[in-house]
Every structure is written in structure tokens, then in C-alpha cells.
Simulated scan of single mutants.
Amino acid sequence: MADMATLKKVARISKVIGFTRLCYFFNRNRKRVIAYHNVIPDKFFDDSLHLAHSMRESSFKVQLDVMRRRFKVSTDIEDVKSLTITFDDGYLNQYEIASKAMDRYNLKGYFFCVDDLISKGDPILMDRLQYWVSYVDEGTYKLEELNVTLELKNKESRKLQWNKISNLLNSGVTQEKVEEEFEKAFSFKNIKGPKAKFLKLRFAPISKSTLKTMKENGHFIGAHSAHHRRLSLMSEEKLNEDVDICKNSSGATFNTNVFAYPYGSKEDISSTVVELIEKAGFTEAFAYSNGPLKGAFQYNKYFMPRMFLADTSDKDLIDFTLSGAKHFIAFRRLLPKWS
């Protein structure tokens, strides 16, 4: 992936030669659904590993301004000429920072929440693991039973060392096992993290009473699974349990039958997952993907694509992405459709 400076240069060239405008035209009937996670005040944003999918508040506000000027921002998923804003997980910053910024423009969105986070206050386990790697004291840590040694120094080394953990998880090692080994190497409770206000915004859940307020303000609150595990890797019993928890929260916590898959790539779902989601009464489901798909597996209402904006306030780069120009250069295709 090109670095930010290079992307900005390419976006500027694309604008000057008219390519961005051309892509807006050719993608005029392609639905845009934007996926966000955390929106963090600039003064707290420390570029640590656990903020890899997060956005500075200043960037988010500029992006909102560009989106509302370019599109009708709507929660109508079927309106191909509109743009829909979505959030995953349910952390407090999505209410305190993101939804309040949207409310100033009277923009409505979807906020997909993990039941463990909302009901029990338990941060998503993957976030706990990234928190450990982000803030544990500098040093060498041996995860004996996983046969892994981590050399943790500056932020960049921590991001690189995280790849070892990511590879383990992709090979089938459970997140619970990694957490157990982290705890043995250095207890979570002894980690000296950043300021308490930052930690609350980043890791505390949106309360159910606040979710009620958000619904009253016109936002949709949807399910993002019960435990935030890769659904395709779960046993049938565990998968049924997870989907049932989400189903039973419909009408109470949730006010939409749209679902968002955790992780959300093609590999993270299966035909069994889709069947259970449909059987539970969910009418559509969002992926976390918008690249071309191979074979018979294509985008549809139970695997709807979403696109992503970089943490930037550069309007040329924002337009470069929203227009589909960035997508076309990467894949030689227009933005995906789904039926």
C-alpha cells in the first residue's frame, strides 16, 4: 500500500486531470457505505497499534463535510445515489465524538454493537490484545507455549511484532490462548496505559440508556455479533448461541434488522453463517470488504460491501476515495454493486 504522502500526490493529480470527476460520474449509481470504527480527539490520538482502524476527530469532521456536500447522506441502504455511514463495535467515542458531530449536520447512521461490550462492559478481546502490545513496558517477552518472542520497543516495532500475533490467530490459535500467554508474560493490570479519559472513550461501551438516546435522535443500532469472533470458525453450537443472543436483543437494544459481520471478509463467513443470520430475521448484512470477489461468491444483500476512508482531512484524497478513483486504480473496476 502506498504511503499517505504518495496517496495525496496521486489524489491531487487525479483531481487536476479530471479523473476523480470522471469516476464520480461513472459510479453515480453505485451505493457508498462507509465503515468507521473509533473517532478519537486529536489531543489523545497517539498512533498506537490499537488505533489502526481509528480516525482523528478533525479528519472525521472534514470527511462529514465532504460527504454531505457530495451526496445525500441517508440510512436507506437501497438508495444507490445516497451514502450511508456505519460504525462497528459500540465504544463510547462513537457516541461522544462521532454521533454528536453527525447530529450537528442532522446526519443519521448505523452503529453496530457487540453484545459482550454493550451488555457486560467487556472490551472486545482483539482490542485487549492490541492494547497489551501497544502499552506494555519495553522489553523482550517470551510467549512460551506459543513459541513466540516479542521484541517491543517503539510504536513501529510494536506494529511489526503484532504481525507475529496476527499470524498465530490466522493459523487457528484462539484469542483466549494468546490472552492467557500475555497475562503470564506481563499482567494486563500492571500495564501503564494513557490517560483515563482516553481509555474511557476508547474502551468503555456506549451505555444502553445512551443507545436509547441515539435511537431517539434517528440513528440505527444494530447487531455486530455477541462475542466478536470469526463466525466461520465457530462450532455450530457456538454459532447458534451467538446469533440467538443477537436475535433476542432485537427490539430492545437494536432497532434495525441489519447485521454487520465481525471482521467481515469473505473468509469470515460461510453459507451456514448466512443461513442462520437470515433465519434469525436479519434482512441484510454488511461485510468489511469492497474489493472484487472471485468465483460464485459475490456481493448480495447478506454480504454488502463497505468502503473505507483513511485518517485524513485532505479533501482531494477524500474525493479520490469516494469517487471510486482509488478503487479503479487498484482493481481496474467500478465500485461493486449488489443485488
Rank of each mutant, 00 (worst) to 15 (best):
D3L: 07
M4F: 12
M4H: 02
T6I: 10
A11P: 02
T20H: 01
T20M: 07
C23K: 00
Y24L: 05
N38Y: 07
N38G: 02
V39W: 04
K43W: 01
K43Q: 14
D46L: 04
A52F: 00
H53Y: 12
R56F: 05
E57R: 08
E57L: 15
F60G: 06
F60S: 03
F60R: 05
K61N: 09
L64N: 10
D65W: 01
R69L: 06
R70G: 01
R70N: 13
D76S: 11
I85R: 03
D89R: 05
I97G: 01
A101Y: 07
M102D: 05
D103G: 10
N106L: 07
G109C: 10
F112L: 04
D115K: 08
D115W: 00
I118E: 03
S119V: 11
G121V: 05
R128Q: 09
W132K: 00
Y135W: 12
D137S: 14
G139L: 12
G139P: 02
L143C: 10
E144V: 14
E145V: 03
T149A: 02
S157N: 14
R158P: 00
I165Y: 00
L168T: 02
G172P: 04
F182Q: 02
K189N: 15
N190M: 10
I191F: 11
A196K: 14
K197R: 15
K197A: 15
L199G: 05
P205D: 11
M214D: 01
M214Y: 08
K215F: 06
H219C: 04
K238R: 12
D242P: 03
S250I: 14
A252I: 12
N255S: 06
N257H: 12
N257V: 10
Y263K: 11
Y263T: 04
G264L: 01
K266D: 12
E267H: 03
D268P: 09
S270N: 12
S271D: 15
K279R: 15
G281N: 07
F286R: 00
A287H: 05
Y288D: 06
K294S: 06
N300S: 14
K301G: 11
F308L: 08
D314V: 09
D314E: 02
D319A: 02
L322E: 00
A325V: 05
I329A: 04
F331H: 15
L335Y: 13
P336W: 06
